[in-house]
Design a protein around this nucleic acid. Structure first.
Lengths: 110, 110
DNA sequence: ATATTAAGATTACTTTTCGTAACTAATGAA
DNA sequence: TTCATTAGTTACGAAAAGTAATCTTAATAT
């Protein structure tokens, strides 16, 4: 039935989980707090929470708690997460070269 | 609200549409017919049809009709589609390095 | 005690997505 | 004419994913 390499398929399904790519892009810029990401990304808090939990479970994102007042929690990429940088960079390059301004305008009209 | 580059965001949303990555992977190996892809991929014909239409609309996939008996229709990648090869290759490399055998086993148990 | 703050859980609800199964269209063979 | 083959399309209902608004928790300042 299925002719695909299971490692690749697993990676592909994980990376094509909605918003995962955008979250990785955010975190490649450095440590981020929940509320910062919530402001930057076009998704609800509930979804962001779900995705961060998924990425933590997969060993891609680390959750660091700082017991200050008020408590500060920062999300960072693990080594496994940082290793995805080339993927994100490639997508950026592709987007710059092949996504036209008209396509963006089309999207906003929808 | 949103701090992301719109080109990148558009690319990311497109590429993280479910099964798009696996379809691109299939087509990077060469021209494919509908039924071949349907057999290789873990998705229904209806979804495959939807995704191919999306990718055609986005200028990533080309649909070539050969009027033989029975009719043969082949899908290939456009230049824009082929330019995504580095993305797919990077994901393959990452998967080989970071997706463990245990994770695969976990998935199959679900 | 009460107010404040960050993080995120919960609830209630709407919307979108996906799978199944049946159907269409074109073409040529029997 | 009726069947076979490829490549889809359509209708429908179930399941999943999404949102917004409202709680909860824990720590500290007043």
């Amino acid at each position: 039935m299925n002719q695909l390499c299971p490692r690749f398929e697993k990676a592909m399904v994980l990376l094509s989980t909605r918003w995962v790519g955008l979250i990785l892009f955010e975190l490649l810029k450095g440590a981020k707090r929940f509320s910062e990401m919530e402001a930057d990304l076009p998704i609800s808090g509930r979804l962001l929470s779900d995705r961060l939990k998924l990425l933590e479970k997969e060993g891609i994102v680390e959750r660091n708690i700082y017991s200050e007042f008020p408590v500060r929690i920062e999300y960072t990429l693990s080594e496994k997460g940082k290793a995805l940088e080339p993927v994100i960079k490639d997508i950026q390059h592709w987007a710059e070269e092949y996504i036209s301004a008209e396509e963006i305008a089309d999207n906003e009209r929808e």
